[in-house]
Simulated assay, not measured.
Amino acid sequence: MNAEITLVGTEFVQRFSASRRGARLARRLAVQQLDAWGVPYGSALSDDVAVVVAELAANAVLHGRVTGRDFELRVLPEEAGGFRVEVSDARGERRPELCAGGPDAESGYGLRLVAALAAEWGVADRVIGKTVWARVAPGTP
């Protein structure tokens, strides 16, 4: 990212349909926004944010979906050159947790990817639903 650009106070916020298509679009638009902010397509930071957005959006669609409700993506630049990614859905009772996984498991690896790529991640309650967030910094893994 260009050291001349200051993005603190800038954010990208968009709602998406709680569908697979919405999750794909969230990832694509997040990467496009990063590029507009000076983080080039295909860079390590852009790729890491893309994976985190994809996994959190997929979880919102698969586990946080409520009929007629969208999910929200928020990407906020941080002072250290990284980004905070937040995905909010309408199901507060379905809390994400790391699964044990295993060689025969067909799912449960998404949050492990998030944990590996993010400096930290967590869950925050909302009036309706929850927000799963992750901080992705340059060179985190």
Rank of each mutant, 00 (worst) to 15 (best):
S107P: 01
L56T: 06
G42M: 08
P40Q: 07
L25V: 00
F83V: 04
Q33T: 07
V114G: 01
Q33K: 12
L111K: 03
F16T: 01
V85E: 03
P96W: 10
L117D: 05
A30S: 13
A119L: 05
A30E: 01
R69S: 12
P103K: 10
D47S: 13
E79H: 09
V13C: 12
T67Q: 14
T67R: 15
L7E: 12
A134T: 09
N59H: 07
P96F: 08
S46G: 15
V66N: 09
G38C: 05
G102L: 13
W133S: 03
T6Q: 10
G68L: 06
R84I: 00
W133G: 02
R27Q: 11
P40N: 08
R27I: 00
G82W: 03
D35H: 01
N59K: 03
L73Q: 05
L45S: 10
G101F: 11
E106H: 12
E55C: 03
Y109V: 02
G108I: 02
A137Q: 10
R135C: 04
A115W: 08
T10L: 14
V8K: 11
S46L: 07
L45H: 14
V136D: 01
G9E: 05
E120Q: 09
A134F: 09
A44Y: 14
R91Q: 12
V51C: 10
N2H: 13
V66W: 08
E79F: 07
A60N: 03
R95Y: 04
D125I: 06
G64D: 04
D104T: 15
Q33W: 06
S19Q: 13
D89W: 05
E55R: 04
L113Y: 15
I5W: 10
L29I: 04
V52C: 06
L113N: 12
A80T: 09
S46K: 11
V123S: 06
L29D: 01
G108W: 09
E106A: 13
V114N: 03
R24M: 09
S46D: 14
G92T: 09
E120I: 00
E97C: 10
E11S: 15
T67A: 15
A36H: 05
A80C: 07
S46Y: 13
Q32P: 00
V31K: 00
T67S: 14
D35V: 01
E11N: 13
L113S: 11
A18S: 15
P40E: 10
V53Y: 05
L113V: 11
A118H: 08
G38E: 06
R24Y: 09
L117V: 07
K130D: 02
A80E: 10
A54V: 00
